[in-house]
Design a protein around this nucleic acid. Structure first.
Lengths: 198, 198
DNA sequence: TGGTTTTTAGAGACACCCCTCTAATAATGG
DNA sequence: CCATTATTAGAGGGGTGTCTCTAAAAACCA
């Protein structure tokens, strides 16, 4: 099998994630990650064809981890419970995995998606499509009889993803931590946004 | 008065804003902005002592423009109307000034606030304090009798600032535009979040 | 043991950026 | 018209980053 590796891919991605969490995607350079991992740059290039691939690995790791849990929560039968649970999950996940959450607070553009290798870009689109489909299901179940599909989806996405992430953003950007109460706040807000009008 | 200037400070800040909107704070380098403005880098250094000062100018211009309008809307007498109006304003402002909005979607850390000249940092803190005070007033007026001050402020800030900005973020990050309906969505969501429970 | 394979190790070419510094330029005031 | 002054113009040093390429190291396998 040849010489055993001193730095395995997962560990390198992990340090790249902490670098990204601390300094944003711009700080994720090949040299910076190599230095942080105590590896020579050659070892990095041995695993990632270039910086775009490294950025993709960082983003995809965070995204997959996030979406996996989200989809599990969204699978609950009662749509309102699924939605409030998902809102709570977004905050809870971010609280326990702040570095990965910080990665997700940046936009795809910041991670230079347009330069990613095609395989990685497709992997991201597949993940987004799967989660998007789960969300559409919930939105449809919650939709008021007279409401159009578009606005209903908008409202659901806002309650389940955007609003919790906004909460997370305010706490994390600035170096702080997320308080436990934020989970309740997210769930409560989602309920208010999605419960049928009185 | 000496030789008249070919590039005035405001115009340079303006091009810096479009550079920042397109490529994020990382793209705002002295050379990049100089190139975009068609000016030699020396002209830039003549007006800004260095990159941190340029980043500060970009951020402060966007922030001042945003907060000015926000405070005006928050000054409305009825607190619930002020809050929903403010939420609407955040989206409306972002819709008409997408480049400035894009600048505000990044965190202070991304703009390297810690390296700014002190004067600029203080100017930012003063602006934040003023807007924060206006928000505290609204939050206090909206607070339910049995609610504590902290959570009430959290809820108000979320409805008035975070959630509208989250909406804006989804549309702007990715290069798109903000649809006009988003203003209604923001105002509606703010109402649902802040109106007294049935 | 000796060949094969995988990986580390790091030097080096090239590009870009920050910033300094010196000249040249073009207006104004006496 | 000349001195003054604000500004443009851009060359160049020093630093850092990307990526390539060669050599050595360290395991496995026959």
């Amino acid at each position: 099998m040849g010489r055993p590796s001193r730095f395995d891919t997962d560990a390198l991605v992990e340090t790249a994630i902490t670098v990204a969490a601390r300094g944003g995607p711009a700080a994720v350079t090949m040299v910076a990650v190599a230095r942080a991992a105590g590896a020579p740059s050659g070892s990095l290039y041995h695993r990632f064809p270039g910086r775009p691939a490294l950025l993709a690995a960082v983003r995809l790791e965070a995204l997959a981890d996030f979406q996996e849990g989200l989809r599990a929560v969204l699978a609950v039968a009662d749509p309102l419970a699924a939605a409030t649970g998902a809102a709570r999950h977004v905050v809870a996940w971010s609280r326990t995995r702040p570095d990965r959450a910080r990665v997700l607070l940046y936009s795809p553009v910041d991670f230079e998606v347009e330069r990613w290798p095609v395989a990685e870009r497709e992997r991201m689109e597949r993940g987004n499509a799967r989660s998007g489909a789960a969300l559409v299901g919930i939105a449809e179940a919650l939709r008021a009889p007279e409401e159009a599909a578009g606005p209903a989806l908008e409202r659901t996405r806002m309650a389940v993803v955007d609003l919790p992430l906004a909460l997370v953003r305010r706490h994390l950007s600035g170096g702080g931590e997320i308080p436990a109460e934020a989970e309740d706040a997210a769930a409560d807000a989602a309920y208010r946004l999605l419960a049928p009008r009185p």
